[in-house]
Design a protein around this nucleic acid. Structure first.
Ligand SMILES: [Mn+2]
Ligand SMILES: [Mn+2]
Ligand SMILES: [Zn+2]
Ligand SMILES: [Zn+2]
Lengths: 161, 161
DNA sequence: TTGGGATTGCGAACGGTTTGCAGTATGATG
DNA sequence: CATCATACTGCAAACCGTTCGCAATCCCAA
């Protein structure tokens, strides 16, 4: 049974080996932002004979052909997610480690304008927000209120990890 | 002669050693974003007897007491700059490596609103833009035009590195 | 089915950073 | 101003995520 990502790999003309199929499977199933060790761990559940080196190599390969995207969340290691049509950023809950995805057209527009005004064309950018839940033991008042009306994107709800 | 940062360190109650004084000097003089090796290199010009380990330890210390700030510009190593009152971000010229600082109140406001709407209080954030000069061999048209009227901050001109 | 280039597993090497340890300096105290 | 406990330093080894060389293996086009 070919996974979503395996199909993508075939389209890109990649040679499909057993380990690549397993990794593609793992990444297709994932809805979080696993690092290489985590991918390896999950892959090992399906097929024990996959080395971490191969996972590293495959992640790089998949990144190169833009099947997955590298995410830098500030902890030491590289994390990955399926390359998706909808660009987004991450808010990291520093208390729980939970990761919430968001998108903001306004923010992107401003960013674009800033670069342009400085005489630059954007070739990439990175934005992460680190925060703590408002309703927790927050020093600053304000009650909790669900995701609001602003451009906060496709998934105002959040994935974890 | 006590440097600006040395004075700050004294205020914070840090024990001032010879090597710390030299490092404080180097950082006071710097107007770019040196990594640890670069700080060590510059420090060695003033006093040859400073080990890289001490520089690492001192940078961490100064970061902890908020005399300097760590900057992550995407290359492997940590870079640093003097902690300043005016918050800003960086646009990295991927062709030249030049680093341009900018600030944008609108951008900060939107970021604030996004987090709030998601139910979070911001404790930190990170934003970098990678770009290439518009007037270079840009594929996408538009002539060059200097820094514009938008909130692009305190130093629309740029520092290098 | 075969053959050769691509891929794998292993361990060693990498680059940036941290750390254990023994020796040295600092600055508080008398 | 001398003394001393403590904090700091240099060195080298360890660390952590990641890459790489190499020989063995696999994939897939012919
Ligand atoms: Mn994501
Ligand atoms: Mn800066
Ligand atoms: Zn964006
Ligand atoms: Zn900001």
């Amino acid at each position: 049974m070919t996974s979503r990502l395996e199909a993508l790999c075939l389209e890109k003309g990649l040679k499909m080996t057993g380990q690549r199929r397993v990794i593609a499977q793992v990444l297709s199933d994932a809805d979080d932002h696993p690092d290489v060790e985590e991918v390896h761990r999950r892959a090992a559940l399906i097929d024990t004979r996959i080395s971490i080196a191969t996972v590293y190599r495959t992640m790089r390969l998949l990144e190169d052909v833009e099947v997955i995207e590298r995410v830098d969340l500030g902890d030491g290691r590289a994390r990955y997610e399926e390359a998706s049509a909808d660009h987004h950023h991450h808010l990291i809950d520093t208390r729980s480690g939970r990761i919430i995805e968001f998108a903001s057209p306004e923010l992107e527009a401003i960013k674009e304008r800033i670069a342009h005004d400085l005489g630059y064309k954007i070739v990439g950018h990175r934005l992460e927000i680190y925060g703590v839940p408002l309703d927790d033991a927050g020093a600053d008042g304000q009650g909790a209120n669900g995701a609001g009306p602003n451009g906060a994107g496709p998934n105002s709800a959040g994935k974890e990890q």
